[in-house]
């Protein structure tokens, strides 16, 4: 009975935080869904020999990496209705604005990781592929990209783990996610324990992320 009385409020808290964690997971998965492919496109554009293509992309990467993500969140939410002319003004729903800001921001980081990976593949492989009669796109998707993915897994896992924790920034748009729920609970109970429980949630999520990347690395290390 005593144990029940002690654990019942704790269980309630864990459930409440769990609902907050769902929002965290939604922003996490949606961001990865959009930013991983977008990052590759940005990387290719960044490496394009045409200046009209690579220069604006360079500027984009500079802005997205060079300004705080929290500011970008505020920008995508408030700016469309503040700086556009009357009639064209609109406001994205809070959550969509958050997904947009996260996706663009993470795509910029992923793009540089992809670029590092792609540029690490020796030129000789392209020449060999050309000799063997591969087309340009075949060379890229069948020969280059699989090796790139293998090489960039560790830096990508860094970003993905950071993303789990960065998701807490969306509270700046009034969205209630794991950390916000924990803070509210902490305020209500006048105790810091919900914050530490939230910490365990983040740790658990990143433990899973780490395990998945470990498994992926093992699976891809077929030549070792």
């Amino acid at each position: 009975m005593f144990i029940f009385e002690y654990f019942a409020p704790l269980l309630k808290q864990v459930i409440l935080l769990g609902t907050g964690a769902l929002t965290t997971l939604r922003i996490f998965f949606l961001t990865l869904l959009f930013s991983l492919p977008l990052g590759l496109l940005i990387a290719l554009a960044r490496m394009a020999p045409q200046k009209w293509l690579s220069a604006p992309v360079k500027l984009f990467i500079l802005i997205m990496r060079g300004t705080p993500l929290i500011l970008q969140l505020i920008f995508f939410y408030f700016a469309p209705s503040a700086i556009l002319p009357e009639g064209l003004r609109f406001t994205l729903p809070r959550f969509s604005a958050a997904v947009l800001a996260f996706s663009l921001n993470y795509a910029a980081y992923f793009a540089e990781i992809y670029r590092g990976g792609i540029e690490s593949i020796p030129q000789g492989q392209y020449e060999a592929a050309a000799v063997l009669g591969f087309t340009k796109s075949q060379t890229f998707f069948r020969i280059i990209l699989p090796q790139v993915i293998k090489r960039i897994l560790p830096p990508v896992s860094n970003e993905v783990i950071t993303l789990v924790k960065d998701s807490a920034l969306i509270t700046v748009l009034g969205i209630s996610e794991l950390f916000r729920v924990a803070r509210n609970e902490a305020n209500r109970l006048f105790s810091t324990s919900p914050l530490f429980i939230a910490g365990l949630f983040y740790l658990f999520m990143n433990w899973i992320v780490t395990k998945l990347f470990d498994a992926a690395e093992k699976k891809l290390s077929y030549y070792r």
């Binding site: 505020i74 209705s81 503040a82 809070r94 509270t171 009034g174 209630s176």
Partner: peptide
């Protein structure tokens, strides 16, 4: 009811959120 970030309350109001 819409929870907002208190620092941004005037923007939230003026952008009709």
């Amino acid at each position: 009811l819409q929870p907002i970030n208190w620092d941004a309350k005037e923007q939230e109001l003026n952008t009709k959120n």
